[in-house]
């Protein structure tokens, strides 16, 4: 008598796979990051021997952003430009509704960058009482700008090199 297979389809045994998943999930839960951490690069001024590493050839401008309790105070400095030429970029950006106007700071820095594209250094000068989180937000505002050509937009570096310093009083 011939053996006849049951017409029912054979079910795959999912139990071992389930066991594997159930073991992996607690393991992954322990090492999963539910909020992501990152870094912001900065430095403080130091005395160094040798020549300056400032770019030579094309004119570059350093942006000096002073964070005051009333807003941002932007001035510029350059080894090659005259004080009159630099004065055109000076700006005071007051707080809006009690908050720093980051978009206006980005706009003011963009104007410098568009004219002197070699510029990449921002001196950040926080006043007494300025909170750390405000310093970080100012650095964020100075990091990138959006360039749009037609329908395409891309982000380019604005003033990514940040030096934190203080005013000598």
């Amino acid at each position: 008598m011939a053996f006849r297979r049951s017409p029912d389809a054979e079910e795959i045994n999912l139990i071992p796979l389930m066991n594997l998943f159930v073991t992996m999930i607690p393991l992954l839960l322990m090492s999963a990051a539910f909020y992501h951490l990152g870094m912001v690069s900065t430095s403080v001024p130091t005395v160094s021997e040798g020549e300056s590493d400032a770019p030579t050839g094309k004119t570059s401008v350093s942006a000096n952003v002073r964070i005051t309790l009333k807003g941002y105070n932007l001035t510029t400095s350059s080894a090659t430009l005259t004080p009159e030429e630099l004065k055109a970029f000076d700006a005071f950006i007051p707080k809006k509704d009690g908050k720093y106007d980051h978009a206006a700071l980005t706009g003011a820095l963009e104007r410098i960058k568009r004219k002197y594209e070699q510029s990449d250094t921002m001196m950040l000068i926080p006043e007494k009482g300025i909170k750390y989180k405000e310093m970080i937000l100012a650095m964020d505002a100075a990091r990138k700008m959006v360039l749009s050509s037609g329908a395409q937009t891309r982000k380019v570096n604005l003033f990514p090199v940040v030096v934190i310093t203080t005013l000598v009083q």
């Binding site: 909020y35 992501h36 951490l37 990152g38 870094m39 430095s43 403080v44």
Partner: peptide, 14 residues
């Protein structure tokens, strides 16, 4: 900086 570390990476939350 005085101890020879003038460069920093400030830890942030993305």
């Amino acid at each position: 900086a005085m101890a020879g570390y003038p460069n920093f990476r400030l830890a942030i939350q993305k």
